[in-house]
Each structure stands twice: as structure tokens, then as C-alpha cells.
Write a protein that binds this DNA or RNA. Structure first.
Length: 921
DNA sequence: GAGTTTGAAACT
DNA sequence: CAGTTTCAAACTC
């Protein structure tokens, strides 16, 4: 028998394993002593454990068997991630122990002891994780035992949530125990046949159990308490029992498989072992993929944890995900899929926990909007996890930060996300903190593998806060994870693509409390990468930041609104690795005189968007679209962009996605989330052209649909506004797509709902949407989607209401603006109806209503935005109302609206100017 | 890395 | 609202 020691002497698990593996006599080793000391149970353990192990025991065998070891290692590695969560939950663990003990009765004292021992070890231990993490541990059997308890715990937790799940878990456990027994028997006498039977049985049971658990509990989401892992680190404040249950089931399954494998090896039943190993291997792989992806994403996306978490759960639940996974080629076994799902969930959960740690706030504290908004983003993550992270990353449209132009694709993405996601200052602050805390892990964890990198990039996108790390200068006040020299910052900025492409400021006089500061403008705290001096844009100065923000907003309600607005007609284009929101436009436009809009001095160029009528630039030569060209409608721009920037990869991926609906859905979802700026679908072509365009964009399909589907919906919709929205959202796509969209775009819907809730006008908006002739021919899927959307909206609606306070609240200062924009749009449409329209609008709308339709309202909206825009009225309805009511003139209102609209294209595409046009008409 | 250029933001 | 100043990023050397 190999001693486990060599593998891992340090880890408790190893220790435990050693103790377990060693027969009682052998245990006399210091390790065993140590272990025994750790837990009171120990004395018993020693006696018992050895027995159990001895009997079964084959720990040595397990250790020796090369096959099992590799698997185990993998599993361990993964598990470490997964298990953390369950381990963190003490109460659950306790329950789990109990359950396990009960279950283990069949197995025998030895098993019980082992489990207890494990539990004890865990408690005493600094970290199970370490033990698990150690790949090299030779402890095959020991590990199993150790893990099994853990798994059981997880299962128990799950059980707590769902009795059924518990039962299933019990079944699994029983199966395991039976296996153990069988092993014992085998040891005594050859029981290969029996073993096989047991294995098969156990497998079936495990599958069934998983199914039961997932099916029953999966949809249930329950907030869970803050936890502390044994190491003392607080983990997520929120958990999803479902997830846990799934996780537990998965673990159980894995454990069972492992156990079976080990046993099989012991028995020398290669066939059985091979089959088991294969199953395990698949599961492990799935787990790893999911876990890696999830980790990367989760860590980076502090803000979105909640939403993400929920979203993930949903996504996991959704058949689409499953399909997606399957479609991706995996394995075919349903079990694997299930395991994957569960793993995803688990990962999410775990990741969330980790990130949540920093975020002490309860889930409820978060803004509803934010959640909704987040959800889309979050969703993207999961979907990304689903496998296409790379594609997603690549495909991700270039976003733009509201305040700061996007420099790197990643940054863009982030910015987009940020824009989409309304975040209150507090949230931001929290994010920042979380980011700080997480930054270390992120950096460490993800650089290793490309996939990880991808995740990272995603994460960055997800969490702007992450982008910025505190400057060394700021270190005094703040924790700075890793500071970078200003040079680096510049580099990063300039090097758009690096994971951290995000901007970092270098403010010296403004204290990062003015819009000069990109960080501040983006609504995020300065962080590590920043080289700012005397920075007050930090969580420590939250009050100051909020105040300042309010002041700025008081002057210009849209000051923190995203600068880049998706162009209605625009297509998502890929620039290099980045997706370009080709049709996106700068809300305010640029004022370049010498740069000819060919340098980053130009905000339009910097954001990779073409100049628009809003621009007052001279000698515009913006490669992304000249001001003069802008009038043509987005078609040209879209074409240009598409031609110039689309990547073969994206096309391929998109095609693949097309082939696989699920995949496509997932991707679209992600893309959508990621690419707010690329409303490709919106593009003007109505009807045929529109469809054509979509298809042309098939590559683009994903993002565009996601974002733009909405627009079409309202355009087409004659139906109830909401329905129309939904319909619009997913006109052509299958229901699944609709679902995805709804999920991903929950914000949009939410916005609509909010609007409704906030003001009766939302109806008008809906009407507008209906009026809008957007292309979407196919409204079909809407109903389901609409219903979903409604639900979403309902959830978020409350949140939106706060948005009404856009002006007021300091928290949401920036973010609320984004949510507001949609409303502004609505209001805008109304305003337009009432009053005069800005010249641009008039031109487009009045002069060429068709064009407008073609161009899609978004374009108009974009154009409509007044160049001055600085002081645009807040997106709020109230504001709108005020405007409308106020003599202010429709023009001003329109301006507001226009600007506002662009800021949140994704949220309320439906609301766009078109609607206004229609209404007017 | 320092200095210059540029255009947005802020101010008057 | 226009003009000026301030600011920080982008750029150049």
C-alpha cells in the first residue's frame, strides 16, 4: 500500500487519507496521531477507519492504480472549487454529516468513521481545499472517502432544500455504500459480477438521483446565508439551494463513479473500471470546463454575482443550455450533461460565494435594475461557460464605456456592460472592493490558460471595477492589489485588447472627481491600475463621490450616461478580435478639429464608432464612418464595418451556432450581453431587407438579435406593447431564443415594465413600439417571451422605479442614467409627438419615414441626439414629463431623448425614435 | 520618460 | 450660449 504521504503531506486531506488508508497498526505514524488529535472522534476512527479501509481498502490499490489517480487528480482539482461552497456551509455540513452517517450505516462503521474523520479533519483543518487541490495525492481511496463525506454534505444541503433531492442523494449514498460493501465482499471473495451489478445499479441510481435533484430543485432559488469557510474566508452571501443540490448530486455521482472505478481496479475488472473511468473522465472534464469558465467569470464580475448566479441557475435549468452543451459536442450522455449543468451551477455558486465575500451586502440590497441588467451580463457568462467563451470573447462587440471611450475590445465590452448595467455608486464601490479582493485571484487564476484568459477578459468586461486597481499612490487609502506604473496603464489603455484593456486614469488635479477622470466618468472607482494622485474616487470617499456625481448630474443628467449609443441600423462588426458596434454612435458626437477623427483624441474613433450628425468635427475621416456618411443610414456603415471587421472566426462560430440552435442561443445571449453597442438587427431594412440583413449578419446574428430584436418587436408589434416587445425581441428566433433573449435582456423588459410602472406612458411607449415599423417580420415567438419578459420586468420594474429617481439618488447616479435612457426614449417619443422635432429627427422621420424605418429608429435616435447634449435632461420619465409639460420645447425634450436613447439602446430599442416617429405620424 | 498635441470638461 | 480655461489622454520624440 502506498502511503498517501508522498502525495500530500501538507494537506489535511492527505493526512486524513493517510490515516484512513493506513491500517490501525500503521496509523501510529505521526500523521495518524495528528489526525487523531484533530478530532475527538479520532480514537474511534483509528480503530474503525482502518477497518473500513482495510476491508475495502484498498486504498493502496487505489493509490497504485495509475488510472484512478489521474482521474482523481482531476476531480480533486475541480472539486476543490466546487466543494468549497459546501464546505463553507457549516450547518449544511453538519446535516450532511448526519445524513451521511445515517446513510453510511449500511456501509459499516469504518465508513462512518471515515466520514466522521473527514468531517473532523475538515473542521480542524485549515482547508479542505488545499487537500483537494493537491493533485498529486495518492490517496485514491482515502480521497474518495474524504470526498464522499463532503459530497454527502453537499447532498444533505441539497436535501435540506429539496426532500426529493435528499432522497436521491440517499439513493446515491446507499449505492455507494452498497458498492463499498460489494468491495468488501469482493475482497473476501471474487465478486466481479456482483461488483458490476452494483456499479451499474449505482450509476443508474446516481443518474436518477441527479435527475431528481435537478428537476425538482433546480428552479428553486433561495438566498442563503453568508458563510465562512473553514479558512475563515467569508464566502458568498447568497446561495442557491438548487445549485447546491445539483452540486451535491454531481459530487455524489462523481464520487460514486470514482469509488466504482477504484473498486473496479481493485477487482481488476478492467472493463468496469474503464467504463467508470470514462464516465468519470467526462464528468470531470465537464466540471473542469465549467468550473474554469465560471471561476474566471465570477471572479471578475463582482457586480453581477447575484444576477449571474440567478442567471446561471436559470440558464442551467433552461434546456437551451443543456442543448448547447450537448450540441457542443460533448458527450452524449445525459448524465454528463446533467453533471455539467450541476457543475456549472456549482461553479457559479462557488464563484459567487467567493466574490460575494467581499460584497457583504445582501442580495436584496442590490438594485433590482441592476440585477436585471446584470442578469444579461451574467447570463452571458454562463453561456460563455457553456463553451463558447472564446467565441464570445472574440465575437464580443466592442463596447464603449459610457464615460471613457473604449480602448480595448475588452474594455469596450466592459464598458458596454457597465453601461447596460445600472449600478449604484454603492454597488460600484462594492464592486471595486470585490474587485480588489478578487483581483488577486483573477490575475492568478486566469492567466494560465487561454480559456482562462478568455474568461478573464470576460470578467473584465463584466466588472469595470476590476479594470481599475488602485494606484500605488492610493495605496495609502486603499488596498491595492497590484499596482501598475502609469506607463502600463497607458499601455493597457492603448492596448485595447489586453485583458485589462480597461482604462485607468492618471488624474493629477481633479482628484478623480470630474469627468476628466475616465474612471469617475465611467462610474467606477479608481483602482490599482490607476496612477491618479489624490484620488477621491474610492470607496472610502463614497460620500464625496456621490456628492460630486450628483452635482455633475445636476448640471448634466446624462453626464454619466454611456457616450456610445448603438445605432439602430448598425450591425455588430468585429474588429480584429473585437466586435465593433459599427453602427453605434457617439451620443454627443465629437468636436475634432485637427485629428480628423482619425486618432483617439476623437471620442468617436476611440470608441470605434463612426461620426454622426451629432459630430461637429472638421474634416472628418473617421474610418468607422464619416459624419457625412452617417446620413446614409446605418446600412453603409454596417456594410463597411461588416466587411472590414468581421472575423472569419466570428463567422465560423456564428455559423456553427446557427447550426446548433442552442449554441446559437447561448451565444446570442452572451453576445447580446456583451455587445450592447451592436444592434445589428435594428438596422433599417425592414421586412425583407431587415431579414436579409439579419441573415447577412448571421454572423452577427447573435448580438444583434439580442439587442435589436427588441427594436423590431416594437416596430412590428401591433399587439400589446409588452407583447410587441417580446415579440420584437425575438421575432424570428425560436422560442428558445426568445427565452434566452428575455433572460439576457431582462433589463430591457424590465425597463419596459419599469416604464410602465413608473408612468402610464410606458403604454405610449409600447404603442410607439407598435407603431414603429421595425423590420421584424416575425413577431411570433413573442408570446412566451413576452410573458417571460413581463415577469422579468415585474421583477426589475421595482428597480426601475428608483431609476425614476435618476436624478436624485446619488447611488445610481451613473447607472440609473442608463436605465433612464430608455425611459427618455419613451418620453422622447411622446415629446416628439407633442412638439417639434429636432432637425435630425425631422429629417429622418418626416422626410424619410421609410428610411427611418429602414434605418430603424435607433439611427434616428442617434442622429436626433443633439450635439450639445451635455445637458440632456435625465432619462427619467419624470424628467420627460417635466420636459413635455414644461414649456421646454419639444426640441429640448427630443434632444434629451435622443441622447438618452443612445445611451441605452439595448434596454429600450423598442422605444426608439421610431416609435416616436410613428406616434407623430 | 518627457514634452507636445488634442479635444473634452469645466468654468466664466 | 459662446468663449476661455483646465484637464488628462493621446501622441510624438
Amino acid at each position: 500500500m502506498d502511503s498517501p504521504q508522498p502525495a500530500n503531506t501538507t494537506t489535511t486531506a492527505a493526512v486524513t487519507a493517510a490515516s484512513l488508508s493506513d491500517s490501525p497498526p500503521v496509523q501510529e505514524s505521526p500523521f495518524s496521531n495528528y489526525i487523531s488529535n484533530l478530532s475527538p472522534i479520532k480514537p474511534v476512527k483509528t480503530a474503525h477507519v482502518p477497518q473500513g479501509f482495510l476491508g475495502v481498502s484498498s486504498p493502496p490499490l487505489v493509490f497504485t492504480s495509475p488510472r484512478t489517480i489521474p482521474h482523481r487528480e482531476t476531480s480533486f482539482f475541480q472539486r476543490s472549487q466546487f466543494t468549497q461552497i459546501p464546505s463553507a456551509e457549516i450547518p449544511e455540513n453538519d446535516d450532511g454529516r448526519k445524513n451521511f452517517a445515517g446513510l453510511s450505516n449500511d456501509i459499516g462503521e469504518s465508513d462512518n468513521y471515515s466520514s466522521k474523520l473527514i468531517a473532523d479533519v475538515r473542521q480542524n483543518n485549515d482547508g479542505e481545499n488545499s487537500a483537494r487541490d493537491q493533485p498529486g495525492s495518492s490517496s485514491g481511496c482515502v480521497d474518495e472517502y474524504l470526498y464522499d463525506p463532503v459530497d454527502v454534505d453537499c447532498a444533505s444541503s441539497a436535501n435540506l432544500v429539496n426532500p426529493n433531492a435528499k432522497q436521491s442523494n440517499d439513493v446515491l449514498q446507499s449505492s455507494v455504500s452498497s458498492l463499498t460493501d460489494s468491495n468488501k465482499g469482493i475482497l473476501k471473495s471474487d465478486g466481479k459480477n456482483h461488483l458490476r451489478a452494483e456499479v451499474d445499479k449505482s450509476q443508474a441510481l446516481s443518474k436518477q438521483a441527479e435527475e431528481d435533484v435537478q428537476g425538482q430543485s433546480r428552479f428553486e432559488i433561495k438566498p442563503v446565508q453568508v458563510e465562512e469557510d473553514q479558512s475563515g474566508n467569508k464566502k458568498s452571501s447568497i446561495k442557491c439551494p438548487n445549485v447546491q443540490s445539483d452540486h451535491a448530486s454531481e459530487k455524489n455521482q462523481c464520487d460514486v463513479l470514482e469509488t466504482q472505478v477504484v473498486q473496479a481496479h481493485e477487482d481488476y475488472d478492467d472493463n468496469v473500471a474503464a467504463s467508470l473511468q470514462g464516465a468519470m473522465h467526462n464528468m470531470v472534464q465537464l466540471e473542469q470546463e465549467a468550473s474554469q469558465l465560471q471561476r474566471g467569470l465570477s471572479r471578475r464580475c463582482l457586480q453581477f454575482e447575484e444576477a449571474q448566479w440567478k442567471t446561471i441557475v436559470n440558464s442551467t435549468c433552461s434546456p437551451n443550455l443543456t442543448n448547447y452543451v450537448t450540441g457542443s459536442g460533448s458527450p452524449g450522455s445525459a448524465t454528463e450533461l446533467e453533471s455539467l449543468n450541476s457543475s456549472l451551477v456549482d461553479l457559479t455558486d462557488s464563484s459567487n460565494k467567493k466574490e460575494m465575500v467581499n460584497l457583504s451586502r445582501p442580495a436584496t440590497s442590490m438594485f433590482p435594475l441592476r440585477c436585471n441588467e446584470k442578469s444579461p451580463i451574467v447570463v452571458s457568462k454562463p453561456s460563455g461557460i457553456g463553451l463558447h467563451l472564446n467565441s464570445i470573447v472574440n465575437t464580443l462587440p466592442v463596447g464603449h464605456t459610457a464615460a471613457a471611450s473604449i480602448k480595448s475590445s475588452n474594455c469596450l465590452k466592459l464598458s458596454n456592460l457597465v453601461e447596460k448595467v445600472p449600478i449604484t455608486p454603492k454597488d460600484r464601490m462594492l464592486e471595486t472592493k470585490a474587485s480588489l479582493a478578487a483581483s488577486d485571484t483573477t490575475a492568478e487564476s486566469f492567466h494560465n490558460a487561454e480559456p482562462l484568459n478568455m474568461l478573464q477578459s470576460l470578467g473584465h468586461q463584466l466588472t469595470p471595477s476590476n479594470k481599475r486597481k488602485f494606484n500605488p499612490e492610493h495605496e495609502d487609502n486603499f488596498e491595492e492589489v497590484g499596482q501598475e506604473s502609469p506607463t502600463k496603464k497607458k499601455r493597457k489603455k492603448s492596448s485595447s485588447l489586453d485583458g485589462e484593456g480597461c482604462k485607468r486614469c492618471n488624474c493629477k488635479r481633479t482628484k478623480c472627481l470630474k469627468l476628466y477622470c475616465d474612471c469617475f466618468a465611467a462610474g467606477i472607482y479608481c483602482a490599482e491600475p490607476c496612477a491618479c494622485q489624490g484620488c477621491f474616487n474610492r470607496p472610502d470617499y463614497e460620500d464625496t463621490v456621490l456628492e460630486t456625481r450628483q452635482q455633475i448630474e445636476s448640471r448634466n443628467p446624462l453626464a454619466f450616461a454611456p457616450k456610445i449609443v448603438p445605432h439602430v441600423t448598425g450591425f455588430a462588426a468585429e474588429d480584429g478580435n473585437q466586435l465593433m458596434p459599427s453602427l453605434a454612435r457617439h451620443k454627443r458626437g465629437c468636436n475634432c478639429k485637427r485629428s480628423m477623427c482619425l486618432k483617439k483624441y476623437c471620442e468617436c474613433y476611440q470608441a470605434n464608432v463612426g461620426c454622426s450628425s451629432e459630430c461637429r468635427c472638421e474634416g472628418c475621416k473617421n474610418v468607422y464612418g464619416r459624419k457625412e456618411e452617417y446620413g446614409r443610414t446605418g446600412e453603409i456603415a454596417s456594410n463597411i464595418v461588416g466587411e472590414e471587421r468581421l472575423d472569419g472566426r466570428i463567422h465560423d462560430k456564428l455559423e456553427m451556432m446557427a447550426t446548433n440552435k442552442d449554441l446559437l442561443h447561448a451565444e446570442l445571449y452572451d453576445l447580446r450581453n456583451l455587445t450592447p453597442s451592436t444592434p445589428s438587427f435594428q438596422h433599417s431594412d425592414h421586412g425583407k431587407d431587415a431579414q436579409k440583413s439579419r441573415f447577412n449578419s448571421s454572423r452577427y446574428v447573435p448580438s444583434p438579435q439580442s439587442d435589436f430584436s427588441i427594436l423590431p418587436s416594437y416596430a412590428k408589434s401591433t399587439r400589446s406593447p409588452r407583447n410587441s416587445h417580446n415579440n420584437n425581441m425575438i421575432p424570428e428566433t425560436s422560442e428558445e431564443i426568445l427565452d434566452i433573449d428575455t433572460c439576457g435582456q431582462g433589463m430591457d423588459y424590465n425597463v419596459a415594465d419599469m416604464m410602465n410602472q413608473i408612468s402610464p406612458r410606458h403604454n405610449a411607449l409600447e404603442n410607439i413600439c407598435d407603431l414603429t415599423p421595425l423590420q421584424n417580420p416575425s413577431m411570433t415567438g413573442a408570446s412566451s417571451a413576452s410573458s417571460k419578459a413581463r415577469d422579468w420586468a415585474g421583477g426589475s420594474g421595482l428597480q426601475l422605479c428608483p431609476g425614476s429617481g435618476c436624478f436624485s439618488s446619488g447611488r445610481s447616479l451613473r447607472w440609473r442614467s442608463s436605465p433612464i435612457t430608455p425611459m427618455t426614449r419613451l418620453g422622447e417619443s411622446k415629446n416628439q409627438e407633442h412638439g417639434t422635432d429636432s432637425g435630425l429627427y425631422d429629417i429622418q422621420e418626416d422626410d424619410t419615414p421609410e428610411i427611418l424605418k429602414e434605418a430603424s429608429t435607433p439611427v434616428t435616435s442617434v442622429k436626433a441626439s443633439s450635439p450639445n447634449k451635455k445637458r440632456v435632461s435625465p432619462p427619467h420619465k419624470h424628467i420627460q414629463d417635466l420636459r413635455s409639460s414644461s414649456s421646454g420645447g419639444l426640441k429640448s425634450g427630443r434632444k434629451f431623448i435622443l441622447k438618452a436613447v443612445p445611451s441605452f439602446p439595448p434596454l429600450t430599442p423598442c422605444i426608439d425614435s421610431k416609435g416616436g416617429k410613428n406616434e407623430k405620424q
